[in-house]
Design a protein around this nucleic acid. Structure first.
Lengths: 136, 136
DNA sequence: ATTTACCCTATAGATTTAGTAGATTTTTAA
DNA sequence: TTAAAAATCTACTAAATCTATAGGGTAAAT
């Protein structure tokens, strides 16, 4: 299941990308337009800023805005920031690899084999989509 | 993330499939061989029986066994039983569809569009794998 | 002074991952 | 025929973690 954090984060990014100019957009405006709890969105946008997808400006006329062009923002990066590993088990994760403690031999593991395929297929989708692709 | 329930269920099914004959295999044997908490596995196997993937026999010489040949068991069915919907959001689910309450227009939703692609790619993997594919 | 993002904390509820205790059914053996 | 043993089945409980959100105050820009 996709967490609401990810869902809201994606919607917020798409909303920012849909704006012609790169003027800051206030949290309240995004929250209202996308039907998101404003306080929750606040923390999501913060994490997007800290990981380098967004920048912000305080005070009047402030808000959040995209750093890069939408066409430069890969969904692999967005998903990893919002949702975490793309792999469904740590033992097939490229960026968050961990050995299973119950599994003596990864090469012989049926789950490993299946989840490798699932990871690769998901990865291909995310690699072929940028933020720009989402808004048309 | 794949739940441990699903992971253990897959391993148990693969173990049963790897047995040449279709004699019942006891919970304890599966649990030991796959490093799974026996009591937890018990409830997982029960749900697999109730959904028609396994059958069981009580008493001495009893245990669980596959109803169908491993090559006849599609991973789409297994995953839906163990993990639930394959889609990451209900609004793109084939078997568990639900409308998002925050989303006025599915057709215009960026999340919807992306998650459709992810669902289709995962579905293709699961459709092209049977239990037999997992054990070689 | 006003407006906005930023930061910290708490929390209710759900889900996950088990553990405990016993009931039920089947087979085997006395 | 009866009793014991072997296995699944059922129900209840509980700890731990995660999720989604709210509240209240701080810092910075205008």
């Amino acid at each position: 299941m996709l967490s609401k954090k990810t869902k809201y984060g994606l919607k917020a990014l798409a909303y920012l990308a849909s704006k012609e100019n790169r003027q800051p957009v206030q949290i309240a405006e995004i929250a209202k337009h996308e039907n998101i709890s404003q306080k929750f969105l606040e923390s999501i946008l913060l994490s997007l800023r800290k990981t380098g997808l967004l920048s912000s400006k305080k005070g009047k006329g402030g808000g959040y805005y995209l750093i890069k062009e939408p066409s430069e923002v890969l969904m692999t990066d967005v998903m990893r920031i919002l949702e975490g590993p793309i792999a469904m088990v740590p033992c097939v994760s490229l960026n968050f690899y961990e050995k299973c403690d119950d599994c003596p031999d990864e090469g012989a593991c049926s789950v490993h084999k299946l989840m490798l395929q699932v990871r690769d297929s998901a990865l291909e989708v995310y690699r072929n989509n940028t933020l720009e692709d989402l808004i048309r």
